[in-house]
Deep mutational scan, measured.
Amino acid sequence: MTTFKLIINGKTLKGEITIEAVDAAEKEKIFKQYANDNGIDGEWTYDDATKTFTVTE
Rank of each mutant, 00 (worst) to 15 (best):
Y34N: 01
T52Q: 03
L13Y: 14
Y34T: 01
T50K: 03
K5C: 13
G39I: 04
A49Y: 06
T2E: 08
D48G: 03
E16L: 11
V55M: 06
I30H: 05
G15L: 15
K29N: 11
W44V: 04
K51R: 11
D23Y: 10
D47I: 02
E20P: 07
T45W: 06
D37R: 07
D37A: 11
L6C: 15
T3Y: 11
A49H: 08
A25S: 10
A21I: 14
A21V: 14
D37M: 10
K5R: 07
T3C: 14
M1V: 11
K11W: 11
I8G: 00
T52I: 05
Q33W: 08
K27R: 14
T18C: 15
I30M: 06
I7C: 13
L6N: 01
T54N: 06
G10A: 05
E43K: 09
V55E: 03
E57I: 15
A21D: 03
W44A: 01
E20F: 13
T45A: 06
K5S: 05
I30N: 02
K5N: 06
A35D: 00
N38A: 09
T50F: 02
A24P: 08
K51Y: 10
T45E: 08
I19N: 01
Y46H: 00
L13A: 05
G39W: 12
K32F: 09
L6D: 03
T12I: 11
I17Y: 11
T50R: 03
I30Q: 04
T56Y: 09
E43Q: 10
V55K: 04
T45Q: 05
T45H: 08
L13Q: 07
Y46I: 00
L13P: 03
T12G: 12
T3G: 04
D37Y: 07
M1Q: 08
A49D: 08
K32A: 09
D23C: 12
T2L: 12
E28W: 15
K14Q: 09
I17A: 01
G42E: 02
G10E: 02
K14V: 13
A25Q: 09
G15R: 14
D37S: 06
L13E: 06
F31Y: 03
E57P: 11
K29S: 10
E26K: 04
F53S: 05
D48P: 09
A25L: 10
T56P: 02
I7S: 01
E28G: 06
T45L: 05
F4G: 08
E26A: 07
I17V: 09
Q33T: 04
E43F: 10
G42S: 02
D47G: 01
E20K: 12
E20A: 11
T50W: 02
I8S: 01
K29A: 10
D37W: 09
F31D: 01
N36M: 15
T18N: 05
I8H: 02
A49P: 03
Y34G: 01
K32P: 02
T2F: 14
E28H: 08
T3M: 10
G15W: 15
I19A: 03
G10H: 03
A21C: 15
T52R: 01
Y46D: 00
K51A: 04
T3P: 03
Y34P: 00
I7D: 00
W44P: 00
I8P: 00
E26V: 10
K51P: 02
T56G: 05
I19L: 10
D41Y: 14
T56A: 04
D41F: 15
A49L: 11
Y34R: 00
T56I: 09
M1S: 08
T3I: 13
Y46M: 01
D48Y: 06
K27S: 15
M1W: 10
G42N: 00
A49T: 09
T54A: 02
T56W: 13
I17T: 03
I40H: 02
I19R: 02
Q33D: 06
T12Y: 14
A21P: 01
K29Y: 11
I17W: 13
G15A: 15
G39M: 05
A35W: 08
I17E: 00
I40T: 03
E20G: 06
A25K: 08
D41N: 12
I30E: 03
E20M: 13
N38Y: 14
